[in-house]
Design a binder for these strands. Structure first.
Lengths: 152, 152
DNA sequence: ATGCAATCTCAAGCTGACTTGAGGTCAAGC
DNA sequence: GCTTGACCTCAAGTCAGCTTGAGATTGCAT
């Protein structure tokens, strides 16, 4: 019974289960592993086995993605979790709070933008050089190819 | 003098000027034209000439992009502006207000997310099926290839 | 023992939003 | 008239974040 309890907590699950529980495609999970967001061990027959806690880890990835974080930023956040070991409740609390900071920042940025836009609606200008809404700020930094990501 | 005033308002400008005024690359402007976000007329020597008001149009594009709108969504917004004619202040006011609605929606979504996250920080769960933060909602709709866009 | 679903690898494709490069034309100043 | 820089087209490359497909293997249930 003790054995069973331990087994239950440290269960290794195949990729299909992880896919079902997270809603992710199997291919996406493999891709995340390749990117280093999650890790797996292999069976004798070369099949991946994940820790159950990786499901939670992936949940975090999905939430962070919805906030607009790129995979590399998410990786950075996740780096503070113990690798290979099941994270504790405290680990998750800490990282969730960090995410909360992200959200707060985004809300503030949007609120500022809205205020500026309100000024602009008054004059109907929307002009690059006269309008408060769009004066360079961070336009300069967005160089190179590839999509420019939103709401920096 | 009257002639001069009219000339000043209806000026046709080459692509380089538009680029300088908007901060966009020349190639990007050509791309936007190809996508139908702006239009141009051609000189005898096949060079593009834009209306001065297209600079403002592009400012709108840039602002909307920062809010996370894709080019096709932006195109839909812009469709309400008169094509080929210089928009009036009222035109811009109307479309700016529509953008404001977008921003409001995003702020609300983020605020809800933050509240849910706060509940979650209490329990440290972040679990897909037990946590209020991440229960399906719109996960289902995100099918097909290509990047999944943020903060729907 | 056998069948069949789940898994594996590796290469290639795809969308969005552009950039880069090659090779050629136009226009304004000297 | 000639150079120089701005402009043209068209094809191909890029990056992120995956998916799709081919062809081979594994592993659980009967």
């Amino acid at each position: 019974m003790l054995a069973k309890t331990l087994k239950g907590r440290n269960d290794l699950v195949p990729i299909g289960v992880v896919a079902q529980r997270t809603g992710l495609a199997v291919s996406a999970i493999r891709y995340y592993e390749e990117r280093g967001l999650i890790a797996s061990v292999r069976t004798g027959g070369n099949q991946r086995r994940f820790l159950r806690s990786d499901i939670r880890r992936l949940s975090f990835v999905l939430i962070a993605q919805r906030l607009g974080l790129g995979l590399s930023e998410i990786e950075r956040e996740l780096a503070s979790l113990p690798k290979g070991r099941t994270p504790t409740v405290l680990d998750w609390q800490r990282i969730s709070r960090s995410l909360r900071g992200e959200i707060d920042g985004r809300i503030q940025l949007l609120t500022r933008t809205r205020n500026k836009l309100d000024e602009c609606i008054g004059c109907g200008c929307l002009s690059l050089d006269r309008c408060a809404l769009y004066n360079k700020e961070d336009r300069a930094g967005a160089a190179g190819p590839g999509p420019r990501y939103v709401l920096d």
